[in-house]
């Protein structure tokens, strides 16, 4: 089970507690997490389920490369951080 941690800044708009979910890719893990918190999904992903322009995701300290498909691999002990990108100011 991968661990998913959300930026504190999102909590003001929608509660996103730390969560765990199974999966071999970022997409699979996030699908599991957002199934129990669908409103949060719209704060992280856009209408096409791609990562929002000014958001970023790290898996075990590495920024993901596939921002639209979210196919970056995830291990069973991985930690996924969902942050704001500094590109947004």
């Amino acid at each position: 089970m991968a661990r998913v941690v959300f930026t504190p800044n999102i909590q003001r708009h929608v509660a996103c507690p730390e969560a765990e979910a199974p999966g071999n890719t970022v997409r699979e893990v996030l699908n599991g997490v957002f199934a129990g918190n669908p409103r949060a999904a719209a704060y992280v992903l856009d209408d096409q389920s791609a990562l929002r322009k000014h958001m970023t995701i790290f898996v075990d300290g590495h920024m993901i490369r596939d921002r639209s498909g979210l196919t970056d691999p995830v291990g069973p002990a991985s930690t996924i951080y969902i942050y704001q990108a500094l590109s947004g100011g």
Binding site: I10, Y43, R52, M55
Partner: peptide, 8 residues
């Protein structure tokens, strides 16, 4: 428009 978090 929350910028990072999209339009609500």
């Amino acid at each position: 428009d929350h910028g990072h978090f999209g339009v609500k």
